[in-house]
Design a binder for these strands. Structure first.
Lengths: 375, 375
DNA sequence: TTGAAAGCGGTACCAG
DNA sequence: CTGGTACCGCTTTCAA
C-alpha cells in the first residue's frame, strides 16, 4: 500500500517558536452588551427591546428603528441561555451521529439542515465518534442544552444513555437501523437484511467464493456481517478464509489491505462484499494494482452508494440507503410533533434500501439470468 | 459519466402513509428534574447538590453518596443555560467550518476534538455550508451561546460577521488561509502560494499545456486559481481552453466532467492541477475511461492530500496541507489564552504545505531533473 | 461542611 | 403600544 511517494517541503514550516508565550497586555474582554444596554441606548425599557426583537409588529416603527440602530451599534447578540431560561423554548434540535466526517452522514445531515433551518430550528450536532462511552457523555451534554427533540443515529445506546433519553421528555428519533424496541420513534432500515441482500445478490450472479471485509465493527457493520453469514449459510457456502476485518476506522487504504489479506489466503476469491464504499474503492484499486480484472475475475459490491461509487472505473455496485430521505423524514416527524403535537401512525418506519447494480459486478462478457432477490 | 446502472428495489419503501397524522394522547412531557428536585430527594439543600456535582471534595462522602443516588434516580442532567447564566463560564469553544462533510475538515475537526475535549471543553460545531449569508447567521447563533473562543475556517467573513466577531470579546482564530489583517489570530497557509507551487511543480516536470479544474469557487479555490494563473503567466504559458470550473459542489463526478470538458477542447492536455482531491480522483477515472494513460499521457495533481490519494492506482500526487496540525495548534492557542492568558508571539502563523509526489505525476519511463520549487 | 440569599439576562404576565 | 415585576435553574458570595 505504501506507494512510492516523495515529500517536497514548501512554505513556512511549523516550529515551536510559534508558541512562545507572551503575556496578554490587558485582558480587555469588553463585556458583551445586554438587553439593558440596548434599552438604555435606545431610551426605552428592556421589555420593549425584547419585543422589538421577537415580535417586531408589536412595537411602533419609530421605536423599532431606534432599537435596531442601538442593536447594530452595540453588536448586540441575545444570550440564548437567558432566553431559554425565561421562555422554556430553545428551538434547538439535538442531533447525534457516529462521526461528523464519515461520508455516510453527509446527506443525512444535509437533509436535517435543509428541513429544520428554514423552519426556524437550530440544529445542534454532536459526534459520538464511534464510542459508546462518548455517546453517553454527549447525550448528557446535549440534554443539558434542552433540545426540543433528539435525532440520534443508531439503536444501540448504552442502558444509561437510553434512560437519559427516555426521561428527557422530548421526542427521540433513532435512525439508520431498525429495532423492535425503539426508545420513542424509529426511522431506519434493516442493516442485517441489507447485508443479506448484497450477499444474496452475489450468490445469484453465480458466485460461490464470496468474501466480506469490514472495518471498525460498529453495530451496523456487525449487522451487515450477520446478514452475510446468514446468506452464505442459507446457500450452504463455506466462508473459511473469506472474511477480513480490522478495528481501525474505515478507509480506502484499509479496503486495499483487507482484500489483500483475503487474496493472500484465497487466491480463488470470486466476489467481495465490502461493508462500505471506501473499502470497496480500496479493494478496486488493490485489484488494479495486482492486475486482477474487475468484474471479470472478481466482482465487488460496496455499501451506502456514496457519490464516488457511480463514477469509479468500473463503476462500483453498492447497496443504496436513502439517507437524505431518512433525514428529511426524521426532521418532518420531529416538527410535526413539536408544532402540532401529531405523532406518526407507526413508531417504526422502514425506509428500505436498493441495490445499485453497476459495472463492478456486471461482466460485459457473460450476462446472467437473474432471480428475484429476497431474504 | 452516467454509467450503466440498474436499481433493484428491496426492503420496505417509503410511502406517504407513514406520515398519517395521529394526535398525541397526552402531551405527557414529564417536566425535567431540577437541582431542587434532587436536593429534595436527597434531603439536602440545592447548593449542596451543586457543590457535590462541581466540587465533589467539598462535600462529605455520606451526602455525596445520597446525592449521587438521587441524581441517578431522577436521571438528572444540569441545565447549561442556568449554569452559564449563573457562572459566566460555558466551557464551550465555537467552531465554524464551511462544510461538516467535506473530507478537508475531517482531520481538522478531529484535532479540535482530540485537543479540546480532554481539557474539559465542549466543542460546538456549526457549518456555514459555503454561504456567506449562512455564515453570518451562524456567527450570531454561536455568539448567543457565549463560547469562550471561536475557531473559524477562512478569512473572508462578511463585514457584519467580522464586526460581531471583533466585538464578541473572545479570542477568534481564523484558520486554513493566511491574511494580513486577521480579526485576532490567524493560523493557516497561503492557498495562493500552494496553487502556485502545484502549477510550478508541473511546469518543472516539463509540462506546458497544464489545465486547472475547480468546483464551487469559494475563496480558497479562488486563491489557488490565482496561484495557477500567476505561475502560468510567469512561465509565459497560455491557458486558453485549459481551465474548467463549475459552481456545483466538488465531487468525484464533477472531476470527471471537468477534465472531460477540457479534453473535448484540448486533446493535447499534458497535465492537470485539480483544486481538490475529489476532482483529481474523478479526473483519474475519466482518463481510465477514455483510455488515457496517467501519468504517461496526462499528469494529475490534486490538493489537500486526502487519505485516498495515496492508495489510488496510480497513487495521486497532491498538495498536502497540515490540517490536523493546524487544528491542534488553533486549539492549543485557544486554551493557552483562556487558561493562562498567554497569547502567541505572532498573530499570524504560517503552517505551510508540502507536495506529496506520487505516481500520477511520475512516469516510470522518463525520470526528470528537478529544480528547487519556489514562487 | 452546609445553607440562605442574591443575582446572571431574558421573557411572560399584567397594568397603565 | 409600552413598562413593571416576577421568575426560569443554577452558582457565587457570605454566614452559620
Amino acid at each position: 500500500m505504501k506507494a512510492l511517494s516523495r515529500r517536497i517541503d514548501l512554505g513556512a514550516r511549523l516550529t515551536s517558536k510559534h508558541l512562545i508565550a507572551h503575556p496578554t497586555e490587558e485582558p480587555i474582554r469588553r463585556k458583551r452588551s445586554t438587553l439593558a444596554d440596548v434599552a438604555k441606548l435606545a431610551g426605552v425599557s428592556a421589555v420593549t427591546v425584547s419585543r422589538a426583537l421577537r415580535h417586531p409588529r408589536m412595537v411602533s416603527s419609530a421605536l423599532r428603528a431606534r432599537i435596531d440602530a442601538a442593536v447594530s451599534e452595540l453588536a448586540y447578540v441575545p444570550d440564548v441561555a437567558a432566553s431559554r431560561l425565561a421562555s422554556a423554548r430553545t428551538h434547538a434540535i439535538g442531533v447525534i451521529v457516529s462521526s461528523l466526517t464519515n461520508g455516510v452522514f453527509a446527506d443525512y445531515l444535509r437533509a436535517l439542515h435543509d428541513t429544520l433551518l428554514p423552519a426556524g430550528f437550530q440544529v445542534v450536532v454532536f459526534s459520538s465518534r464511534y464510542s459508546a462511552d462518548e455517546e453517553e457523555k454527549v447525550i448528557a451534554t446535549l440534554l443539558g442544552q434542552h433540545p426540543e427533540a433528539i435525532i440520534i443515529a443508531g439503536i444501540d445506546q448504552t442502558p444509561h444513555g437510553r434512560r437519559l433519553l427516555e426521561r428527557s421528555g422530548v421526542p427521540v428519533i433513532q435512525t439508520f437501523e431498525l429495532t423492535d424496541d425503539p426508545i420513542d420513534i424509529n426511522v431506519g432500515l434493516s442493516q442485517r437484511q441489507a447485508g443479506y441482500a448484497a450477499t444474496q445478490y452475489l450468490i445469484d450472479r453465480g458466485h460461490r467464493r464470496i468474501g466480506y471485509t469490514a472495518a471498525r465493527l460498529d453495530a451496523r457493520a456487525h449487522a451487515r456481517m450477520e446478514g452475510y453469514n446468514r446468506a452464505m449459510a442459507d446457500a450452504r457456502l463455506p466462508t473459511d478464509g473469506l472474511v477480513a476485518t480490522t478495528p481501525r476506522p474505515s478507509s480506502v487504504s484499509a479496503g486495499g489491505e483487507l482484500i489483500g489479506a483475503i487474496l493472500d489466503r484465497r487466491s480463488d476469491l470470486e466476489a467481495l462484499f465490502c461493508c462500505d464504499d471506501n473499502l470497496a474503492l480500496g479493494a478496486l484499486f488493490e485489484c488494479q494494482r495486482r492486475d486482477i480484472a474487475v468484474p471479470d475475475q472478481i466482482s465487488i459490491i460496496g455499501f451506502n452508494d456514496l457519490e464516488f461509487a457511480a463514477c469509479a472505473h468500473p463503476p462500483i455496485s453498492s447497496v443504496a440507503t436513502p439517507r437524505y430521505e431518512m433525514g428529511r423524514l426524521a426532521a418532518e416527524i420531529v416538527m410535526k410533533i413539536i408544532e402540532i403535537g401529531e405523532r406518526p401512525a407507526d413508531r417504526r418506519i422502514d425506509v428500505g434500501f436498493t441495490i445499485s447494480e453497476r459495472g463492478s459486478t456486471m461482466p460485459v462478457a457473460r450476462p446472467q439470468a437473474r432471480r428475484a432477490l429476497s431474504e
